[in-house]
Design a protein around this nucleic acid. Structure first.
Length: 647
RNA sequence: GCUGAUGUAGCUCAGGCGGUAGAGCACUUCCUUGGUAAGGAAGAGGUCAUGGGUUCGAGUCCCAUCAUCAGCUCCA
């Protein structure tokens, strides 16, 4: 038979050969590395025969699908090990995920750390046996009977929910059988390194209405070295974690008596936010935005118009409750969003089509009653400040204004140096979950198509996500991953064809008709707390000079240099730099060590020599000793670095 | 909100079986004036997260609450 290989060549092999044997004929190394086969674009186990004329790609650990296959098999080994040690455990699901795998179990007792160690040991024992995997297919009733016999109710449920005609496959290794679509490795011995990372609760089928199962996370590699490298990467991520580093660098802290999700920005953290905020507000003004300052709270009346009272009540801090409200007692709520407030500014007077587009911005503090388990450092908090803005425009202006919002967001990302770290998500509604949204289906589809067209024109490389829209409209979310790989929205730009009507916002068009403007909701840099968190992680605390809370430290070797040091400090401050003076009676090595740990970009070291020559010895935090320079030249260098911002 | 872990000096952490707390760094004072990541000495710092309970006696055991961390669910 003829097989098309991945390099484009066509080769002849004996009929009925499987992928593993073909790999062996190509090279012994490839046979050793082979984990799965991609046959005509579909991943399958290596031991299945390859049909004549097929296109074959042998997948190794270097391929994403190869990796997944290895880890998927590792998850089965995990299940086998758990069954061996905890025979009463019920199996749920166990997929490969981005950096490893997990398996969910229903057990009476949650797994303790010692359990994980024991399970990992058992896994090593199983892997050593290098058992072969076999695949078999059963008709639905027999498959259900088998899983009932094995006492696996979750598997029975999974089979029952499979659509008709779907092949129901099982994989068997030793005496362990698991329902699984596969593919899998030919034998468990190909998993060379495995590590269990943690145990945690997880709801069956991802719904909080269901029972909470116990999930074990682990990872697996094709070599011990690769596993060690990965573990080292996790350690490095921990060191960069904004929640740890941000506290160590005294950017923020929290207080038990203030409460969850309410971080305190310390002077250094607040300084960075202030720099960003001033920069954003100035840039927005340059782009035609008008600033508003709207109240932090409003009566329930406002939220009833906006829909928040019905769609976002649980997310708000309400002073009072729905019962009081029904009785006519005034109930105020802190604002979870700025939109309805800025809309009131729009409603201040009648608007003409000539007034549009109208761009409002506000550095807006919002309050959201996040569930208690959600809070995380500066990334998920209950009170945050966002570069919020709303644009009212005519239908013919939507595209240009939307482009302007994207352009501004991109400009901000470039300025802070995060442009390469983001991805774009087109967040759509879920037509099957009408409760969550307002407006009719045709309107939703029309708005979404419009948004998609604009983004296509702009060549934005987005992924579509159903069910992620706001309740009033679709969003372009600019997503970013934190140091642990967890994704969050940094920036969002939304098109809203609905709230203007609800709020009675109109403009008089050129034909004299009253019309509702289209509203764009947008942020330019996101919320400052979250952005600060991402910047801490991006730069591991060593902020670009324009953002560094302290930009220059002037430090003396002996007190004979104090006079010159003070002169320099004054000159730096006069040039608008954030300088600090270290005149303490300490050794220079000590002062430098401290400044290095604080990640101050520049250190100016002064000894008798510098005083005599009226020069400065410059040290950069990343390049070390730069030698002696004229004060004017280092000052100009730093000022220029601040001017160009990022990097 | 759910599952689990954790909470001892400003920070990082010790304190088998219950007998009223200890180290390093940081801080204060003194000595030292020393050229690119820690000079030396002395001192001061803790109602052991909070509130109950068991006990002759609780940092240690039990319960509740609060906070922190990981994951789930939710979300900027």
């Amino acid at each position: 038979m003829k097989i098309h290989l991945q390099n484009g060549s066509v080769r002849e092999f004996a009929d009925g050969m499987n992928a593993l044997d073909i790999a062996g004929e190509l090279s012994q190394q490839l046979k050793k590395d082979a984990l799965a086969a991609e046959v005509n674009g579909k991943t399958q186990p290596l031991w299945l025969p390859v049909p004549d004329g097929a296109t074959l790609n042998i997948l190794t650990f270097a391929h994403e699908e190869g990796k997944r296959t290895l880890r998927h098999t590792a998850s089965h080994v995990l299940a086998q090990a758990v069954k061996a040690l905890f025979p009463s455990a019920k199996l749920a699901i166990g997929p490969a995920i981005e950096n490893g795998f997990y398996y969910d179990f229903d057990v009476e007792q949650p797994f303790a750390a010692e359990d994980l160690a024991a399970i990992e040991k058992e896994m090593q024992r199983i892997l050593k046996k290098n058992a072969r995997l076999e695949r078999f297919v059963l008709p639905r009733d027999e498959a259900i009977a088998l899983m009932k016999e094995k006492g696996e109710p979750y598997k029975v449920e999974l089979i029952e929910d499979l659509p008709d005609g779907e092949e129901i496959s099982f994989y068997k290794m030793d005496d362990f059988v698991d329902l699984c679509a596969g593919p899998h490795l030919p034998s468990t011995g190909k998993v060379k390194a495995v590590k269990l990372l943690q145990a945690a609760g997880a709801y069956w089928r991802g719904s909080e209405k269901n029972k909470m199962l116990q999930r074990i996370y682990g990872t697996a590699f094709d070599s011990k070295e690769a596993l060690d490298a990965y573990v080292e990467k996790l350690e490095e991520a921990k060191r960069r974690d904004h929640n740890k580093l941000g506290r160590e660098l005294e950017l923020f802290t929290t207080s038990d008596v203030i409460g969850q999700g309410l971080p305190i920005l310390l002077p250094k953290g607040a300084k960075i936010v202030q720099i960003l905020q001033r920069f954003v507000e100035d840039e927005e003004e340059r782009r035609g935005y008008m600033i508003t300052k709207t109240p932090f709270m409003a009566k329930s009346d406002l939220y009833k118009i906006s829909g928040h009272w019905d769609h976002y009540y649980d997310g708000m801090f309400v002073m009072g409750d729905k019962e009081m409200d029904k009785k006519g007692i005034e109930v105020l709520a802190l604002r979870p969003m700025t939109c309805p407030f800025q809309f009131q500014a729009y409603l201040n007077r009648t608007r003409s089509y000539r007034d549009l587009p109208l761009r409002y911005n506000e550095t807006s503090t919002l309050f959201r009653n996040e569930a208690s388990g959600e809070m995380h450092g500066l990334i998920r908090v209950r009170q945050f400040t966002i570069s919020e803005g709303h644009l009212a425009c005519r239908p013919d202006q939507v595209e240009e204004e939307f482009r302007g919002c994207v352009d501004l967001a991109k400009f901000m990302l470039e300025t802070v140096g995060l442009e390469d770290d983001v991805s774009y998500r087109f967040s759509k509604w879920d037509p099957n979950d009408r409760e969550k949204y307002i407006g009719d289906a045709a309107e939703w589809e029309r708005t979404q198509n419009l948004m998609r067209d604009i983004m296509d024109h702009m060549m934005i490389p987005y992924v579509e996500a159903e069910g992620e829209a706001a309740f009033y409209g679709p969003k372009l979310d600019i997503q970013i991953r934190n140091v642990h790989g967890k994704e969050d929205t940094m920036i969002t730009i939304q098109i809203d064809f609905q709230l203007a009507e609800r709020f009675g916002m109109t403009y008089t068009d050129s034909d004299g008709q009253k019309k509702h403007p289209v509203v764009l909701h947008r942020t330019s840099i996101g919320c400052y707390e979250r952005t600060l968190a991402l910047l801490i992680e991006k730069y591991a605390g060593a902020f670009p000079t324009w953002l560094a809370p302290t930009q220059v430290k002037v430090m003396t070797i002996t007190e004979r240099c104090d006079g010159w040091a003070k002169e320099i400090d004054r000159a730096l401050k006069a040039a608008g730099l954030r300088a600090e003076l270290d005149l303490r009676n300490e050794k220079i090595g000590f002062k430098i060590r401290e400044a290095q740990m604080e990640k101050v970009p520049y250190m100016l070291v002064l000894g008798d020599k510098e005083v005599e020559e009226r020069r400065v010895a410059v040290r950069s935090r990343k390049e070390g000793d730069l030698g002696s320079m004229e004060l004017e030249s280092i000052l100009a260098k730093i000022v220029e670095e601040v001017r160009v911002k990022a990097k």
